[in-house]
Structure formats: C-alpha cells, structure tokens
C-alpha cells in the first residue's frame, strides 16, 4: 500500500451532539480514514498537541458552537485541514476573522451544514426544480427541552441556510416572534428564547415559514425532529429525515432505533474525499457569509418585534 493509500489520520475534537455520530462514521463507514485521537469530555483539546503526539492529518470539530472558532484557529495554526459543521461562528465578526485566518494559512476549512447531509433533504435539493413555480417553504427544527444552547445560532441558522439553498433567491425581509416558552432560568427576551416563528420573504416571492423550538417534551420518542416541505405549483416535496426509525417493543418497553444514515456519514465521506483529491470544499466558511447577515436581521426582528428589511445582495 502506498503512502497515499494509507487511511487519513483524523482527530475528533470536542464534546457535542456530533461527537458520537462523527466517531461512528469514521470508525464504521469511512475506510479511507482512521481515528487517531479523541479529545472530548473533560479534556481541553489542543489540536497542535494532538497533531504532534498522534500525527493527525485532519481535524473534525464536534464541539458546541461557542467553542468551535477557537478550535478552528488552533487547527489552522497547526496547518491541519478542518471539518467543522456549520455554524462555525455565531456572528459575522468572528466568521470574518476565521475566513481571513484560513486564507492566510492556506488551509482548507470544510464547514458543512449537517441538515444538507440528511438524505431526504439532499434528495429534495436535487429535485427542487421539479416543483415548477415555487410557492412557499415550510421548515421546522424542534428539539427536546433539555437541550440547551442559543436557539438562533444552533437551530435557526442551519434552517435559514437550508431555505437559501432550496429557494435560491435573496431574502428581502424577515419577521420573527420569539419567546422563552418551555424552559425556566435567568434571563428574558429573545436572547433566552427557546421558540421562534420566523417568516422570510424572498425576492422571487417565495415565503418561508420557519419554526425553531425546544418544544418537544423530554420524554418525546426522539430528541429532535426536522420537517421540510417545499410547495410548488406543480409538486410538493416533503422531507422528514428524523422520523425514519424502527420501533422495538420488548419487556423493557418500546425502543426507537434510527436506521437512516446520520448526516455525519456523508460529511466525513465528503471531507476525506476533498482532502484526498485536493478539491475545493463544497461548503466553506465563505458560504456562511450569506447566511449570517440574515440571521442577524432575524435577531433584530426578534428583539424589536417588527419586520426588518434585509436589502441588498448578501452573497459574496
């Protein structure tokens, strides 16, 4: 076996919802990659140290959003290609800083939106032109109440990205109603919201109705659910990527077992292939540059309670 045929040595950094799916994908589904290090719970991951000690050639970041930018910077300083699921940053200034650092370092940063890697949503995207004149998009991402984190960064931003990806037009205006409805704790107002109804009006007339909420009871059969419907004059496309499961009822109760490949599988496969071929990352930090401005308007609309115009071309 030649050196280039050797499995890619990958380190997985951070303890978040994607840690286990990424490890499973690297271990079971990606023969071209090999996990050499995991820095997760209770550790302070340092990509430089890990790379030196373990000889990692690539880094997958699975940390919570707040920790991602710092991990990307240290990976860039070590000169290691990075896979960091979107959002890599929750605000424009941090994102712009990362973009500049990645360009200076000449290191590839792959920043995929996991939602785009659910097979039903990828299929919807492939077949989006089949619906004729698009009328409207409905998309919901709900999680159980115990899951914490910033609602807008964690849930709204990836869903806005999906909306832009499917509708293929600029957002003209947004309106948001957001509240803390299901959780208790300090803080009030949009910053602590756990539910938001978001309306996006696109330049081509499409209206996207987005719902993001930590509204599912904690004993709900699944920790999260995603529903997307793309309504067109000639067809309606409907994707329910998170309800693909079998149920097993036994003496110990009813268990739910997902069977659809987790997006991490497609993400890791794409990452490894991109490194192997030297291709451009299909979703880079730059791609987030057209989502974050919309998110910032969404936050503004949530704060003011009034409609906010987005205006101007947002894409790079």
């Amino acid at each position: 076996m030649s050196a280039t045929d050797q499995p890619l040595r990958v380190a997985v950094l951070g303890d978040g919802p994607l840690t286990r799916p990424m490890l499973d994908a690297l271990t079971d589904r990606t023969p071209g990659a090999h996990v050499v290090a995991v820095a997760a719970e209770g550790s302070t991951p340092n990509p430089s140290a890990i790379t030196r000690a373990m000889g990692a050639e690539a880094v997958c970041i699975a940390a919570p959003v707040a920790d991602r930018a710092g991990l990307i910077v240290t990976a860039l300083e070590a000169g290691i290609p990075v896979c960091c699921p979107a959002p890599a940053a929750g605000d424009l200034s941090t994102l712009d800083s990362l973009i500049l650092r990645a360009a200076d370092a000449g290191v590839m940063v792959y920043a995929p939106n996991p939602l785009r890697h659910w097979l039903p949503l990828a299929t919807m995207h492939e077949r989006r032109r089949n619906i004729g004149t698009p009328l409207a998009l409905f998309a919901a991402h709900r999680t159980t109440r115990a899951i914490t984190g910033d609602l807008f960064t964690d849930l709204a931003l990836p869903l806005i990205d999906v909306a832009l990806w499917l509708v293929e037009a600029e957002v003209e205006r947004v309106q948001v109603m957001a509240e803390r409805l299901f959780s208790h704790g300090p803080g009030d107002g949009p910053d602590s919201a756990d539910a938001a109804l978001i309306l996006l009006r696109f330049a081509n007339g499409v209206v996207a109705t987005l719902e993001v909420a930590r509204s599912l009871p904690d004993n709900f059969p699944q920790a999260e659910e995603v529903n997307v419907e793309f309504l067109g004059r000639d067809a309606v496309l409907r994707a329910n990527p998170t309800n693909q499961a079998i149920t097993v009822t036994s003496a110990s109760g009813t268990m739910r077992e997902d069977w659809l490949p987790h997006p991490a599988v497609s993400i890791i496969e794409t990452f490894v292939e991109t490194i192997r071929t030297g291709a451009t990352a299909p979703q880079s930090l730059l791609d987030a540059r057209w989502v974050l401005p919309v998110l910032e308007k969404v936050r503004l609309a949530a704060t003011t309670g009034e409609m906010v115009r987005v205006g101007g071309a947002l894409r790079r």
Partner: peptide, 21 residues
C-alpha cells in the same frame, strides 16, 4: 403565513395555501 402573539405570551403560527397540485 400568519404569526400570532397572545396576551399570555404564547405564540402560534399557521400557513394556509389553496393552490397545491
């Protein structure tokens, strides 16, 4: 597509379309 905010803080939404295939 309509958003409603209620006096007790609750939120509600409805999306109605009458022009599907």
């Amino acid at each position: 597509s309509i958003q409603l905010r209620f006096a007790n803080g609750a939120l509600a939404g409805t999306e109605v379309v009458t022009n599907l295939p």
